[in-house]
Design a protein around this nucleic acid. Structure first.
Ligand SMILES: [Zn+2]
Length: 409
DNA sequence: CGTCTTTGACCAGCGC
DNA sequence: GCGCTGGTCAAAGACG
């Protein structure tokens, strides 16, 4: 009996030991699997990015060929001092901020850059209306807000796993000239605010000049100290259009909706802006890429050198044009989208905010030294946004609060 | 009672 | 310096 007991005990112990070993091994394998999966993801992203880059280069070459033929016309225009300014702005990043950051020079800059975009990139977009709205939105003094510290920038880079084309020196240089990157989203919405998965706290409201609708200011409260802010304002011309401008980088993980987009947009956005940093050619790249990022859109993407800080504009108000979907593999790799069509994706109310959040983080982190870029991406969206908070007006307009005082400083 | 919104005050930048 | 404008602060109140 005693012997038997001992033998079963030792047997149990051996089994336990073995179990423990196996469990440890399993854990190890899990970990390894996780690492490998991460690596695979990264490789995939890099592949997508490279493919984008390649495509853009091909486009650039095409356009260059085209331009050589039209060189004389170009030179003539440049002599008229109309076209030449944009490339210079992109080259002299620091000077550019002083060239173009006052209100009076803003409009001419918009005009110039759009002419530039169009003539170089062959019929990229007419989008002057959009930029008029954007102009109203963005000539404010946000640039005086504090730049995020280096750690934050690096953290954001890591968070998004963005493959960077700008060398480290650019990031360092960028710290000196750091400006807030902004992502402006235009959607059709009756709600006072689009639901974007983040938590926001309203901290102010103003009547902006040139727009009877008040502009509301929100700050991200998903994490203590998150510097992300957003402005929400209705379009003066079409009050069904809600313009939401995001600014800054989240210091916390993005909500699932935003994360879903992040992987897909990171490569594209990085490409978009890395291409646009230093030259007219880059401007072209960015336009081309912006156009291809959301190929279902009826209008195309533009990039402009108008803003005192880089601004990506997502116009989700246009009617759909599903003729040319899936031009690029990264869109096919869109998480969970292998069976769905892009218009459905862009109609998702989460899409807007997710894309905005992702791009804000990405470009804010990886390419902070572009000072005068405006990227506009247009897609269709008739989403039904939900207001996450009641957002009353203290302006003298038609918003919800009948008791509003009508006074704004 | 804690959280959020409202809203007048305040501040900085800019043009004159 | 002054006024205008956009952005932020913070006290007071609303709300659950
Ligand atoms: Zn945040």
């Amino acid at each position: 009996m005693v012997d038997d007991d001992i033998s079963t005990d030792s047997k149990d112990e051996r089994v336990k030991l073995e179990f423990g070993v196996l469990q440890a091994e399993l854990e190890k394998l899990k970990e390894e699997n996780y690492k490998l999966r991460n690596m695979l993801d990264e490789v995939k992203r890099n592949y997508d990015t490279l493919q984008m880059h390649f495509a853009s280069l091909m486009q650039v070459r095409k356009v260059e060929d085209c331009n050589q033929e039209q060189d004389q016309v170009f030179e003539k225009k440049q002599n008229e001092n109309v076209e030449v300014l944009v490339p210079r702005q992109f080259m002299d990043l620091e000077l550019a901020t002083t060239n173009c950051d006052d209100e009076t020079s803003l409009s001419p800059c918009v005009g110039r850059s759009q002419i530039e975009s169009k003539s170089i990139a062959n019929n990229i977009e007419e989008g002057s209306k959009e930029f008029d709205h954007d102009k109203n939105e963005s000539h404010s003094g946000i640039e005086r807000m504090d730049s995020p510290p280096k750690e934050q920038v690096l953290a954001a880079i890591n968070n998004n796993n963005v493959p960077r084309f700008s060398p480290t020196t650019n990031v360092e240089q960028a710290e000196a000239t750091m400006r807030k990157t902004r992502v402006s989203v235009r959607t059709r919405s009756e709600a006072a605010q689009i639901s974007d998965g983040c938590q926001w706290r309203k901290y102010g409201q103003k009547l902006a000049k040139g727009n009877p609708c008040p502009r509301a200011y929100y700050r991200c409260t998903m994490a203590i100290g998150c510097p992300v802010r957003k402005q929400v304002q209705r379009c003066a011309e079409d009050r069904t259009i809600l313009v939401t401008t995001y600014e800054g980088n989240h210091t916390h993980p993005l909500p699932p909706a935003a994360m879903a987009m992040s992987n897909t947009t990171s490569a594209a956005a990085t490409m978009l802006l890395s291409g646009s940093m230093s030259s007219a050619e880059g401007l072209m790249n960015a336009n081309f890429l912006a156009r291809t990022m959301l190929p279902c859109s009826s209008s195309m993407a533009t990039i402009s050198a108008s803003a005192p800080f880089p601004t990506v504009t997502l116009d989700l108000t246009q009617p759909p044009n599903p003729s040319n979907q899936f031009q690029f593999p990264f869109l096919q790799n869109f998480p969970n989208s292998t069976t769905s069509l892009l218009p459905q994706i862009t109609a998702d109310p989460n899409f807007t905010a997710a894309l905005a959040a992702a791009i804000t983080s990405i470009i804010g982190a990886s390419l902070p030294n572009i000072n005068n870029n405006n990227v506009s991406i247009t897609a269709n969206n008739n989403s039904n946004e939900n207001a996450t908070s009641s957002n009353n007006s203290n302006g003298n307009n038609n918003m919800n609060n009948p008791n509003s005082s009508g006074k704004t400083s």
